[in-house]
Design a protein around this nucleic acid. Structure first.
Lengths: 250, 250
DNA sequence: CGCGTCATTGACCGCAGTCAAAATAAGTGG
DNA sequence: CCACTTATTTTGACTGCGGTCAATGACGCG
């Protein structure tokens, strides 16, 4: 069982599939892309692997090529909260100097494209377009984080669950507009992890899911698979209402 | 009553007093600093002034030189939430392209150092150190936003209020360590605004303040002035506990 | 003095956190 | 393949924090 997979093909694949890493590599010069390819290595990790802990200064950063990671913080009372999820093409680890501000841990089996921070930084120094992309991305993340804090704070748990399901569905059908039929989504998190992310408890989560099922909005295939039967209703519950089929004609 | 104040002295003052703008100007070349000084102008605005609304693309960005601004988002149900406060040396407006993601509004009388985005951007293009600072700052903001979402979600309202008071006290006594005596802090927000920021209602806020007063942790001088009588207890309630006098010996 | 604004206080109630237990899924050894 | 253990999800009963509605009090202004 090899831990280091054949790289070149995968990197190209990742670059082609778009997302953050794709755009970043697209902003690179051919030379930079080649150097990145030479220096990066692919890692495969099982669930529960801690990639970085709060306070330490890791010398590697990485892109998620498959699976799901979580960024978590722990409160003084011992509890721990997931402040963000990392999905394929997302970057983790510190781009700028300084200690890690949160723990990074794999929630599922994951494939990671890793590169030494020093290498990445010198590489970046000669790629102004990539630098700018990094800045743009940081601001996008910031906006997302603020929207998330509003969602966590302003709405009931059913709304958060609905919003999360919408997010999964949107990611699945990205690009093409909605076929108005049922769509299956897969949950890659345990109830406990999802609860931590949505700022609630597993028990309350279960109630929210079954409330949506009772209202015929979703169908619970098994604890990790859901079928969305009534997307408009789901959107309404999530509090987003519009902006699905309306702007998907790109 | 002049709306455009004498600039040069003020800019230098702001630069010297440190903070984000100070560091940014410090990273500029002498030439860049001069050009910034030439192009920036000082504005004075009354409370309630809307500097930018969600969706628009403002052609100016600015630094807060005095007073307090709020970044707010409104939910589909009509309610509005303050997602961040801007205090002196903070920057507002979009550095990168794209529409404004939240409304920016003055909560008090405020002095703003404004500059056209295009000017700032061309200025920045020849200042790599400043560019990097911008990236670092964006990531710091991101971490702050995530910490904030944990605070909003994980703790009770008294804890949030306590944390907010600690923040005010920390800002006031910045640099020097704690004299173990009572400290006065001034609130620059209405109860409604603070409630929106802390994710609660004015009524609940009032109860939290008076609960702290009943426990002799603070003294309510008037609705906008508080005296902190027992800082350790306040820290304990806020859920931060440590990290006050311990690391202030720089 | 009357009015409007804002903070405070009180009464009520619903959502969700907590504790506890049952049901289901998943893994282990015979 | 089945008995047994362990982990995870689901259901139930209870409680409390905090949101909501409503009334009172404090303050500033015309």
């Amino acid at each position: 069982m090899q831990r280091t997979l054949p790289q070149d093909g995968l990197i190209e694949l990742v670059a082609r599939q778009g997302g953050y890493l794709g755009r970043l590599l697209g902003a690179f010069s051919d030379e930079g892309r080649t150097r990145f390819q030479d220096q990066a290595r692919m890692r495969v990790v099982p669930p529960g692997t801690v990639l970085a802990t709060e306070g330490e200064e890791p010398d590697e950063l990485g892109f998620v090529a498959g699976g799901m990671l979580a960024m978590s913080k722990h409160l003084p009372d011992g509890r721990t909260h997931i402040v963000g999820l990392l999905v394929p093409t997302d970057l983790f680890g510190r781009i700028v100097d300084g200690p890690q501000r949160h723990r990074v841990e794999s929630l599922s089996d994951a494939r990671l494209l890793c590169i030494r921070r020093s290498v990445f930084e010198t590489l970046l120094a000669s790629e102004p377009a990539a630098q700018r992309l990094l800045l743009v991305h940081a601001h996008e993340e910031l906006d997302r984080a603020r929207e998330w804090s509003v969602l966590l704070n302003g709405s009931k748990v059913v709304s958060r669950v609905a919003a999360f399901l919408v997010m999964l569905a949107r990611r699945r059908g990205s690009g093409t507009d909605w076929p108005s039929g049922p769509v299956q989504v897969r949950l890659q998190l345990s109830r406990a992890d999802l609860a931590s992310y949505l700022g609630t408890r597993p028990e309350t989560l279960s109630r929210a899911f079954h409330q949506l099922a009772d209202r015929s909005i979703i169908r619970i295939v098994d604890p990790y698979h859901f079928q969305i039967d009534d997307l408009p209703a789901l959107l309404k519950v999530s509090g987003q209402e519009s902006a699905w089929g309306d702007d998907a004609g790109g």
